[in-house]
Design a protein around this nucleic acid. Structure first.
Lengths: 202, 202, 202, 202
DNA sequence: CATGAATGAGTATTCATTCAT
DNA sequence: AATGAATGAATACTCATTCAT
């Protein structure tokens, strides 16, 4: 698709992974090339042989996240499912990442922040976020059409709401699977159309 | 309340303000004591006279944000209003800050991120977030009780949802007042109870 | 005269002197900021406090040479003397520098070489060389007018010849005061008009 | 004559040529083995296969210059000509090099400078300069004997003068063929004996 | 309060050189 | 012969912090 769309492999992949972990632990401010090299088990000069500068390194990290993102999205032919199921699968994907590689979110957040001042990072992170957001909006619009979701749902705003809630859940000091599940439940209640018999009970 | 609850004034206040702006512009990684001093119009050594260390400086910034936060909340005796009005006022407050001092959100985000690794920052930022979150949860619970908001609303999860949506709105590349308004409208639709006549129409 | 014509003093002067000596000993390739700092007796960081970069350091060295050059030329009101005397005084000046601060020539040569690739150095070195050259050309023209020097003397080419010979003398592996004196004598014979009785003897 | 007197050929010759050009462009300080390799179109490791170290590389450059120098001098059996013609031929040789391979002078200057601190370079450059200088001195002595050149000409000093003038001409910011010609003319006037009728006219 | 000067401990980056293939 | 990868030892430069004045 894109001209530079070669997935990262070999040493650069190892470097990107080590960098991601260190960013998750210490943030960008605490990121040191020496530490990355040490964690990979190579000399700093070798690190520079593969990644010419720190700027390039951060780009590499961004591209590495995109690789993971793409890998996840590529293997999911679910567009034929009902909107509600699709949304639930999105939640499951998020949950899985949350449990298995929580570092991804931290790094993603840092990168998003950094994208504000770094055009190269923006060029990688921006489309990724736009895609994720677009997928959610698509699902919401589909659900409204199906009648499963509220008719007055604003897909764009709803996507923002879902995305923001996921991130906030992840950031909360009380973060964890239970909180995540409560947040998902709340989101589902928020977007779904009220059952017709709602007038009788309550 | 707290032993150190003296609002920041004089040079330290100028320093905190300059630091906040620089953090908003360049992030923590790009924050240099020399730059802050230059922006205040003083010497680095003078900066260190007022703020003994960089760690203390970041604490100062956190406390400075808290001062703003407190100043905003102190002048709002609105707990007697209906939940819907209270929520709308929260949105208005957020909107005002968004327009007038957008830097506050950026710095707040950076501080939240930093709080994960820095206990002192956490000690200042944590309670602030908890308070904001608690207020929203309180409003939502009140609304459920009143019957204005959905009965099955989970106040905690809902607060998270509202907060997350605000932040996401602020972070979105398309951020701006219009997007903010759409997000607020969506949040209101999400938490409100369906009108009783929903059984007839739709 | 020039806006930046502040003679170098204090620490920068010490730094320039140390740098000059190190350049004379090891050339530009062997010039290390650490060594300069060590020779001045200060920390490398202190060196960078006074001179922001290596580029600036080399400019400083160039300006330092110019200061010496100006100091020498300012205190010499000799334009009223006969051309031959003026030329002899030029030789004496050169000889004095040669004996007392031979490092100046080495550094001057290195700087001249560097000026080819470094515009800032060129801006300092160029005018200096042009002035020196112009002075020689002026003396030669005056001598021709007086009848002391050959009538067919090309002042420009002659100045080049004198200057080149001095430099070559300095560079020769057999350099030293005696060689210098022989070269001066040869130059004097070269530019002087032949005595009228030359037709009789020979 | 010398044990190592094998002219440089093949890859080493290519390397020497590339190195010479890079030295001319950036000086010794800016000479990087990687750049040389890149210009030759080989890998750095391959460069090191042919030339074991940077020191050896500089020696190679010096030897390469000597090869050119010898090639020029070998094909010139001119010792039977009158001194004036020989001197003119020297000027022509210089002029030719000046126009065709001006880089040679720059590299030669750099090498001469370097010879002061590097014994190995000195061992190659020294004899070359001594030979050139000796040739000029020989021609001048011959001319004096013939009566073409001044009787009081000091061959050694005169050789220095000629050599220095050539170099200075090359270094002058106004360098170029015209300046060169004026310098040669001046040198010829300087060394030649005055015509006998000089007593009558001026 | 304020500052110019100074500094120790870093920090990314460079570069000649090596080595297994 | 050639190369991709690796490395030790530098190297210029940075930055928070200190201190005498």
């Amino acid at each position: 698709m894109h001209p530079d769309y070669e997935p990262i492999t070999g040493r650069p992949a190892e470097i990107a992974l080590a960098a991601r972990r260190l960013i998750a632990e210490r943030g960008f401010e605490g990121l040191r090339t020496r530490d990355i090299a040490a964690r990979v088990g190579i000399n700093v000069a070798t690190l520079h042989y593969h990644v010419p500068s720190k700027e390039a390194l951060i780009e590499l990290v961004a591209r590495s996240l995109r690789d993971d993102f793409v890998a996840q999205n590529v293997t999911r032919p679910r567009k034929h499912l009902p909107a509600l199921d699709q949304l639930r699968l999105e939640f499951l994907d998020f949950r899985e990442t949350l449990v298995e590689t929580p570092e991804i979110f931290i790094v993603m957040t840092e990168l998003t922040e950094r994208a504000r001042r770094d055009e190269k990072v923006k060029a990688v992170v921006g489309p990724m976020l736009a895609f994720a957001h677009g997928e959610l909006a698509r699902i919401l619009a589909l659900g409204s059409e199906e009648g499963t979701f509220r008719a007055d749902l604003d897909p764009e705003a709803g996507a923002l709401m879902i995305f923001g809630t996921m991130v906030a859940t992840q950031r909360s000091p009380r973060r964890g699977p239970e909180l995540f599940d409560r947040a998902c439940a709340e989101l589902l209640r928020s977007v779904q159309a009220q059952p017709p018999e709602s007038g009788l009970a309550t």
